[in-house]
């Protein structure tokens, strides 16, 4: 902020706008209401797109090599790394986990976020405190929380202790040790850290709803549940779709939580594309194979972005009409 304000002092931006015509011409006049914006988006594009797309291109090149990332000797192997990925059962397993992760974390975070938003809009006591409690998990890095969760879900951890003390002792089990439950724990941690975002976005969206709409429903005698389901929920659909996109991207990028809590185990039960790429590229030093997996991740991500966006546009068109 300070940088921008200093810039303002140095540049006389209030001078009359006299040199516009010379570069504008007819095109400019036609779009008088919309001056050209290339110069404005250029820094971000050059910077972000430049750096990241260059990296993607470079990754594409590496994916055709057998290489440890730094050694001078490289072997060109064409598409062999991709063939290897498709025949690697762990790769398919990670896709399955990603899909499960998306469906579970998206639905639970969305429902919870929506309910919290509705409850906190109903003027409870100490609303601010509840908001902070929900958002602090978003603030904390997975690296900070990983040891805490490992402790909580250990065989003699707080979660089993709690189950035993509320009379559900028969459900107590070594959560992180079993292929079947480890993934559930990873998803629970993801939901814990992500619900704050869903909540805050729904909370914001509900604040924008037309009060008349709600009053009309009240006169109608609609009950709370019906009101939530048939009036509020359809009106925050935009937020729900945005959250779907964010959750899908988040599921594909999953890395920290499974890496730090279960190291992808036991027995690949919590392996995700991110952890597989890291393990392949860094400890195993197979940078070429890791790059091929990275490119596959990007292809999937792009395909998904296109599908989600297409669905969104269609829906948007329908409601606008």
């Amino acid at each position: 902020m300070t940088i921008s304000s200093r810039a303002a002092e140095q540049t006389p931006i209030t001078r009359p706008d006299d040199d516009r015509a010379q570069e504008g011409g007819a095109a400019r006049r036609r779009s008088f209401r919309r001056p050209s914006g290339y110069a404005w988006i250029l820094p971000a594009l050059v910077f972000s797109v430049g750096l990241l797309y260059y990296s993607v291109g470079y990754t594409g090149y590496i994916s055709t090599l057998i290489w440890n990332g730094t050694a001078p000797d490289v072997t060109h192997v064409g598409l062999a790394n991709y063939a290897k990925a498709f025949s690697d059962p762990v790769f398919w397993l990670t896709l399955q986990h990603t899909a499960i992760s998306f469906v579970v974390t998206f639905s639970i975070s969305t429902v919870l976020g929506f309910v919290f938003a509705a409850l906190l809009h109903s003027r409870p006591w100490f609303g601010g405190l509840y908001k902070v409690a929900l958002f602090v998990p978003v603030v904390l890095a997975p690296a900070i929380m990983a040891p805490v969760f490992r402790q909580i879900f250990a065989n003699d951890g707080q979660f089993n202790w709690l189950l035993t003390h509320v009379g559900l002792g028969s459900l107590a089990q070594p959560w992180l040790a079993q292929s079947g439950t480890a993934l559930a724990v990873i998803l629970a941690i993801t939901i814990w850290g992500g619900t704050g975002v869903s909540f805050i976005l729904y909370f914001a969206a509900m604040g924008q709803l037309d009060p008349e709409l709600l009053e009309a429903a009240e006169l109608d005698g609609a009950g709370n549940i019906r009101r939530l389901a048939s009036i509020i929920w359809p009106n925050v659909r935009g937020t729900t779709l945005a959250l779907a996109t964010l959750s899908a991207i988040g599921a594909l990028k999953t890395f920290d939580i499974p890496y730090l809590v279960t190291v992808g185990g036991p027995n690949f039960a919590t392996e995700f594309l991110g952890t597989l790429i890291y393990r392949t590229s860094i400890p195993l030093g197979a940078v070429g194979y890791g790059a091929a997996l990275s490119i596959l991740l990007l292809v999937i991500a792009l395909a998904m972005a296109i599908v989600l966006n297409a669905g969104r546009n269609k829906r948007g068109a329908r409601t606008d009409a």
């Binding site: 940088i3 921008s4 810039a7 303002a8 140095q10 540049t11 006389p12 931006i13 001078r15 706008d17 040199d19 516009r20 010379q22 570069e23 050209s36 290339y38 110069a39 404005w40 820094p43």
Partner: peptide
């Protein structure tokens, strides 16, 4: 590209 424009100048200055 757009050096004649104030907008670009102030951007440049900021940068």
């Amino acid at each position: 590209i757009r050096s004649g424009r104030r907008s670009a100048k102030s951007l440049a200055a900021a940068l």
